[in-house]
Amino acid sequence: MLALRDLFDAAATPEASAWLDGALRTAAEDPQRIPVLFPQIPRRAGRQYLAGGLREAGAVRVETGAWRTCDVAGLAILTASGIPAEELLADLHDRGDLEERTMVLRALAALPTRPVTGRLLGEVQRTNQVVHVAAGALDSNILARTLDEGGDAVGFGIDEFNRLMLKLAFVDLPLARAIDAMRHANAELSRMLQGLATEREAAGRKVWHDTNRAIACAPTEGTVARLLGGLEHGDDHHRLAAAEGLARLDRDDLRQFLRERLARENLPRIRDVLERAVKTAAR
């Protein structure tokens, strides 16, 4: 089981740590009390962010800097007497306020993938609450892990994965926070992301900065043209993502475009990417 108590105690007040100790005893002795304990957690355990860093336990990987003291307390209370029942997780989510739902969704990242995982990720997808999309899908490898551990069997197969990744683009959350997600990149996801980008461009609206970065992981029709176009984009974020995407494709027939752009590129970070990509060709 993922252990975060050390980070909790470093970030929380002594009163919060003492409260959590008592709440853990209550939850272990009488799990029926958990629905009454749960709403109290943010005001008792606090909302301070933990120190950042990647922490792992078995197949679980989480970025601790996205977790708050209340999120840790929520996970600890849920697991006070072992893996929580799926019915409890669903109930706490469905009857919870915004904070309670956030805590349940964060906790999923550290729990075994089960049908409730797919069900709650589906709720995240449906309700469109950005803070819940982030809590449910980001700062851990839950999306990749759920697919690795069965996917369809728990109601979260590749179609659901693709829709949730598209939701990240739709609400403008960073791809990098979906740890390991791009291991499951696929051409259909690229098609969907390109379609969203085209639609946004036609409407004069903001396009997800990670579009070019993501589609290069699984190219499909139109991907190369979009990446080459992105290389001349006036927005630095899009240009950087296009350069990274083309570097990832690592295609000899495209390297002349990288060289051409390198000759005119002023931004050091993008130049670094282009120079590495061009050198790769020189070998």
């Binding site: 629905p35 009454v36 304990l37 749960f38 709403p39 943010p42 009857r95 306020d97």
Partner: peptide
């Protein structure tokens, strides 16, 4: 009511 009486607001 017990669980709702503990909600923040």
């Amino acid at each position: 009511l017990p669980r709702y009486l503990e909600k923040d607001s």
